[in-house]
Amino acid sequence: MAIIKTEGLTYVYGEGTPFRKVAVDHVDLEIEKGDFAGIIGHTGSGKSTLIQHFNGLLKPTSGSVYIDGEKLWDDKAKLRPVRFKVGLVFQYPEYQLFEETVYKDIAFGPKNMGLDEKEIDRRIKETARLVGIPHDILKKSPFELSGGQKRRVAIAGVMAMEPEVLILDEPASGLDPKGREHILGMIKEYHKEKGNTVLLVSHSMEDIARNVNKILVMNDSKLFCYEETAKVFHRSKELADMGLAVPQVTRVFDRLKAMGIELDEDVYTVKFGRDLLLDKLSKRKAEQN
């Protein structure tokens, strides 16, 4: 069964004012348990609005959202448990840190869930390990940390709730390449270890291509498609028309194909492209000999 399902989900900002804007327009979507999905779309395409419906932060103007088969907004009291089930990490999450120590800040979510001290402690230790926060930092004030460390602490704060679905809005934005790599690596690790559903909003096609197995494309408030990575990048022309780019390496290989080099598969990671090329070259060498 799909963990997240939407039916005709529509959200309108500023209904009844001159500033009325449809942010999400009739989205029908089913995200399966265990998916690691990327969400792409240009700025203002409705990505952020869409994900805020998945944990009941925004109420749909019309249409409905089902989490694990249960319809949201039928009973307002049930919204809080949904937020523990679907963890949402906002863009620049380090700005939400507030506690005296890193330990206490990560504990905020689990504490709100009503867990006991021992369980909270276990979860903090585990997420700290997962995101790579050393033990001595746990006792420090979150305001003393570096930008990248703060980001990791903030993400750990949501991960510690052990949500069945983890949604991250641009978790790597504003970090240097090393920090990016680290954050994305740790998200991938989390997915591998827990087998939970992970949704990753990102502008970087390279980051998406390297990590996820499915891609959701938003265009102009509408759902363009939700399919396997390869299938989505195969439609590079349509993506380009939307103002989205496929990964650089895919473009390189598209050009190679246009030049008449026969390649049977689509390439969207550098590693895979290298292997494919090496394979092709060695075959050609074998033919020549």
Binding site: F84, F108, V158
Partner: peptide, 10 residues
């Protein structure tokens, strides 16, 4: 934004 983020943490 901060309110939404903290609400998301319960």
């Amino acid at each position: 934004k901060i309110m939404s983020a903290q609400k998301a943490r319960g």
